[in-house]
Every structure is written in C-alpha cells, then in structure tokens.
Design a protein around this nucleic acid. Structure first.
Length: 424
RNA sequence: GGAGAGAUGGCUGAGUGGUUGAAAGCGGCGGUCUUGAAAACCGUUGAGCUCGUAAGGGCUCCGGGGGUUCGAAUCCCUCUCUCUCCGCCA
C-alpha cells in the first residue's frame, strides 16, 4: 500500500507517478473521500471525547454519593449521534482503504518509463548462446526421448499444464533445487526456511496478491478462505507480519524451496507447449528484509545471487530492468533474468528480483526499531527467484543437449547427480 | 473427532462495570556508585490513528467481530486461535 500521508500531501504527484504505470488515479473521488474522512473523524473523536468526559463525571458523582439523574439525562442522546458518525466514518474509511489497497506501488526513479515488455531496458548479458552443429530440440522432445517428461500423464492425473517427471529428469529436477539451496545457504549467507503452502487471505493481502490478483490463485474449497501459495514469497515475507524486529537482526535473508501454484488465468494459449508455464512448479525463492536505506544495494545483491546460479550452471542469460508498464503490482523496481533457450531461440524469464520498498511492509505491518528514533519503522522487503526450478530444468536440457539426444550434466550439478556426467 | 481450560504490553503475570493504557516482576534505556564491569539503588520504558507550522491536544487498542451500558479488559453472543486429556494419524 502507498503511504496515505503521501497521498494526502501530494495527490497530484502520486497521480503523475501512477500515470507512468498506466494507472489513472481518480483524484476527484479521493479528494472528496479524504475531505469526508477528515471532518467525520474530527466529529467522531470530539463526540467520543465528550462521552468519555461525561461518563467519568458520572462515576465521580456516584462515588461522591451525589444524585446522577441529571447528568445521565444530558448524555442520553450523545450515544445515538455518536453511533451515526462512527458508522459513517467506518464506511468512508473502508471505502478509502479498499481504493488504496488496489493501487500499485510507485516505481523508483531509475525505472525506465514504458508501456509493455518491449520497453524493458537491457542491463547486461552474460555468456554466449552455444553454436549447435545440429538443430537443437526443445525440452518437450528431449524430455520425451529421455522418457522423463510425460505431459499426457500429467493431464490424465490432473489437467492441462501439469506434468509427470520420471527417472533422471526427475532426479535432475531435484538436483537443481538442492544445488540452489546449498549455493545460497553456503556461499551467499541465506537462512533456509520451510513454510506452509496453504495460506490465509491476510498473508496474501500483505504481499499484494489480494485483492487485485485473486484470479491467479488457487483457492481451496471449504468453509475457510485459504489459498495455495503462488510463490513462497507470500508465506516467507509474511513471517514478519505484525512483527517489530531489532536493528541488529537486519538484514534477514531467507532462502526457501517450495512448490508454487498458479491458475494462470489470463494466460490461455500462452506457452501451452512444455514446462514453461505450469499450474504447479517449484521455485527456490530469495527474500530480504532490510533497513530502508539498504534496500537498493540489497536488490543488486539479491539479483547477483540469482545470477550466480546461472553462472555456475554456465547458462547464458541477460538482465533486464522492467519498465513502468511491465513491472509487478508490489514492486518499486524489478530486474528480470532471462535464460537462453536454444529450443525457442530466445531468452525466457527465469527469475524476477524486486524491491518492494515499504509497500508490502506497510500492508503487513512489518517493522524494525530504528535506534536513531527509538520508534518502530517500516522495513523494506525484497524477493527474487533464485531460480525457478522447472524453467532451469528446461534450460539445462536444451542448452546441454547432444545430437544423439543425450544431456550432459553441468559440472556444478554432478555432485548432486550421483556423479553422473551425462544422462540419456 | 470427543471433553475441558485459556487468549492482557518485548516476556511472565495481576486485574470481574467508573480517572486502568492497564499492578508487579523480568527485559530494555538513562543515571548514581566503580579504574572498568557486575551487583545494588533511582528514574524511565506499548502501538496505531488523528488535529496542529510547532508547542501540544484528542481518539482507538487488553485474540477478531457484534451486543448490553451514561461508562466494558471486566457482563452477554459469536468466530478464530492456543493448551491439556482421550481417540485417530505421517
């Protein structure tokens, strides 16, 4: 959520900022709501004050043994008018709240202005796409030949966009996740964490998936409002919800391997072939909780950590800064990592690293005690994939394929593959 | 799934209708003492919102929501969660 004080003090500025994202702020409506809120709140609080003062007087008079009928008569109507203004105030406040909860974060000044992914800014590229002496296959054909990737079976068990992995492909998939976890815990200083895959609405609200992105979630049937996590960013970041942490505890760096579930509503017809876009996939997620002044350095660090996975696996990739039109709801700035896929002859997203600044922290009440002020202040939260495991599997298969259909195992991965240097 | 108990500030834990945002202890912070530290002693120490240039006011909050009342941490309803015992179970 945006800072309500900022919206109050600089509505035009906020509107101009949101314009860059293609959002038109209803300035007139907000101004009207805010005006009502203010007068109603003042009125309500005045009435409450009066009630408190008089009720106290009743108590004192009673204690002194005086007759209280007179005072009680005076206060009689107070409750009624108070109730009316209180209800009105609650209504206006929730209206304001609902509107604000649906506004995305403001983007950082360094974020390129643009309309779509066409306008994302190339930051750097790493590695050279391999020159093949044959026509490289895509992972679907490779997986089928290895008898390790069975989409038909996935459909039978569940529905479209599910897959069954077998044999060395399943093992490779697991190896990738283990490798990533070890890299981040052993070399990058992350604390491993394991969290629920089913979360409540409050957790999803805090990270920004609710209320706007509800369509992308799988909701559980049943009386309680529960959802499958679309990313472990939700439960991991939510561990800080309504918490105040001491300054010495920061930065907190979590790495979490989890399964992720996305309904992919609105993606019909996109990437219908293969493992690129599944309803269920695994991801190793990186989350940073930091002091506000450190968050942009942390974004560079986190992005670097994600890149290191690709570098150790020797997979060519590039880094893009998402433009204002393509960046996610909660993010102030995002770098996407795109890996080269020979089967598609193009770079595809494999990680997205974002600084949400105080956007999520404000929604979930995640704070730290600032020694300089002695007061609890909002932390900054960051998250990024390090990496999407399924897509990394795709990248390894396609980049390490041989003409005979065998797959070489990247050196860094061999210890996780029982020493295998090649499969198939 | 059955039976019972409970939810109070960073923590432990008092408080059953009237200056109680809340005793006490622990912890934290500041000070006295000390070469320094510890101990002891003294003081201080919740959060959110809001009005105000400020100084400084005001409001809300004792798990969530609703109700009774002039007045609720205290009474009533309801939901959620936690704990104990029994059953079941990876």
């Amino acid at each position: 959520m945006l800072d309500p004080k900022l919206i109050r003090s600089d509505l035009q500025g906020v509107a101009a900022q949101l314009k860059k994202r293609g959002i038109t702020l209803d300035v007139a409506r907000l101004e009207a709501l805010e005006e009502q809120r203010k007068s109603l709140q003042i009125k309500t609080q005045d009435l409450q004050n009066e009630r408190n003062v008089r009720s106290k007087a009743v108590g004192q008079a009673k204690a002194a043994g005086k007759n209280v009928d007179e005072i009680l008569k005076e206060v009689k109507d107070l409750g009624d008018s108070l109730k009316v203004t209180e209800e009105l105030l609650t209504k206006i406040q929730s209206e304001l709240q609902d509107y604000l909860a649906r506004l995305p974060n403001l983007t950082h000044e360094s974020v390129p202005v643009g309309k779509s992914e066409e306008d994302n800014l190339l930051i750097r590229t790493w590695g050279e796409p391999r020159q093949f002496s044959f026509t490289p296959k895509d992972h679907v054909d490779l997986g089928a030949a290895l008898k390790g990737m069975d989409f038909e079976n996935g459909v039978k068990l569940s529905k479209a966009r599910f897959v069954v992995l077998r044999n060395d492909v399943a093992k490779l998939h697991r190896a990738l996740a283990q490798f990533m976890l070890d890299l981040h815990t052993n070399e990058h200083g992350y604390q491993e964490i394991s969290v629920p895959y089913i979360v409540n609405a409050a957790s999803l609200y805090g990270t920004g998936q609710l209320p706007n992105l509800k369509e992308d979630l799988f909701a559980l049937a049943g009386e309680e409002e529960l959802y499958l996590i679309p990313t472990s960013e939700v439960p991991v970041t939510s561990t800080l919800r309504d918490e105040i942490v001491e300054a010495e505890q920061l930065p907190i760096k979590y790495v979490c391997h989890s399964t992720c579930f996305r309904s992919e509503a609105g993606s019909y017809g996109k990437d219908t072939r293969g493992m690129i876009r599944q309803h269920q996939f695994e991801k190793v997620e990186l989350v940073h909780i930091v002091k506000p002044e450190d968050s942009y350095a942390a974004l560079e660090e986190l992005t670097h950590h994600a890149e290191m996975v690709l570098q150790k696996l020797e997979l060519p990739y590039r880094v893009l800064a998402l433009c204002t039109g393509d960046i996610g709801f909660a993010a102030a700035k995002t770098y996407d990592l795109e890996v080269w896929l020979p089967g598609q002859q193009r770079y595809r997203e494999i990680s997205s690293c974002s600084n949400t600044e105080a956007f999520q922290a404000r929604r979930m009440g995640a704070r730290w005690r600032n020694p300089a002020t002695g007061k609890p202040e909002l932390v900054h939260t960051l998250n990024g994939s390090g990496l999407a495991v399924g897509r990394t599997l795709v990248a390894v298969l396609e980049n390490y394929q041989e003409e005979n259909g065998q797959i070489r195992i990247p050196v860094a991965l061999q210890p996780y593959m029982s020493g295998l240097k090649v499969i198939g």
